[in-house]
């Protein structure tokens, strides 16, 4: 038996929708955000519409049941039922969407706040466009010394940073659950792998209060580490962050 095209279209849409939920929510155990699912489905509907309507004959077949429902005198009862039920469903949907809830409002938070061109760090005004990690050169020039510096950075990290950012640098430290937004996961390819070392230096040294005024209010519980660490300790901890995660800082020179 041939499935009517309208039903085919509905089945495809339902299959894709529940496919996303089954794959992400159940099989991968990582829920698909409802906002993203809505965006995905909007364009899946567009794609299905395109495939089902590019041809005149197939389009006629697709809309035939709808046309019949509206025009065919023998379908009067069904017509009346559909015309009564559809507005009710739409109304109920609108009511559910609009009713007040106790849920905190959604927040759009950007992962990387934009840095200023210059910043006052350790009493000096530094140009973040030109600032470089003074120890990075040892990676090639003196690998043994570089390893030592990384290890010193590791000690600084374990003594100061792992409480929030985690001993695996995955943002899951012992205090992480108490913070919103949660601490940054350095293992994620979308975090430090995208940034220059000068950015990390600025972000660590000036912390939450150092975030730019232009895009206030920022929410960040990052301390102002220049009050607690020395300049060289911050550069070493940056070496450690990249070394442990296997990421490379953003740069513009090939080697």
């Amino acid at each position: 038996m041939k499935i009517p095209r309208l039903l085919q279209a509905v089945l495809v849409l339902a299959g894709v929708y529940y496919g996303f939920i089954i794959v992400f929510d159940i099989l991968l155990d990582a829920v698909i955000p409802s906002s993203l699912l809505a965006m995905y489905m909007f364009f899946v509907v567009a794609g299905v519409f395109m495939v089902f309507t590019y041809d005149e004959d197939q389009t006629r077949e697709l809309v035939a049941p709808i046309k019949a429902l509206v025009e065919d005198p023998s379908k009067r009862i069904w017509r009346n039922i559909v015309f009564a039920v559809v507005p009710l469903v739409a109304g109920a949907g609108a009511y559910m969407q609009m009713q007040p809830s106790f849920e905190a409002p959604l927040e759009l938070r950007t992962i990387h706040p934009a840095p200023p061109t210059t910043a006052k760090i350790f009493g000096k005004r530094v140009n973040l466009l030109k600032l470089e990690n003074p120890y990075r050169k040892f990676e090639k020039e003196d690998p043994e010394k570089f390893r030592e510096l990384v290890e010193e950075g590791a000690i600084v990290y374990i003594q100061n940073c792992q409480y929030c950012h985690g001993d695996k640098l995955d943002g899951k430290g012992p205090y992480a659950a108490g913070l919103n937004p949660t601490p940054l996961n350095f293992q994620d390819v979308g975090t430090i792998a995208q940034l220059q070392e000068s950015y990390l230096f600025w972000r660590i040294a000036t912390g939450g209060p150092g975030l730019p005024k232009e895009a206030a209010p920022w929410i960040s519980s990052m301390p102002v580490w220049q009050d607690f660490l020395k300049e060289d300790e911050i550069w070493k901890v940056i070496l450690y962050l990249y070394d442990y995660t296997g990421h490379h800082p953003r740069s513009w020179e090939s080697e």
């Binding site: 991968l28 990582a30 955000p33 949660t182 979308g190």
Partner: peptide, 29 residues
């Protein structure tokens, strides 16, 4: 068009354990 910064409800935030999606996050860059 998958965004790097996902818009999450509080429940989704809790379920994921943070604002980073293990599988969708890499699609954002």
């Amino acid at each position: 068009f998958t965004p790097h910064t996902l818009v999450l409800t509080n429940e989704e935030l809790k379920a994921l354990g943070g604002p980073y999606h293990k599988y969708l996050g890499p699609l954002g860059i």
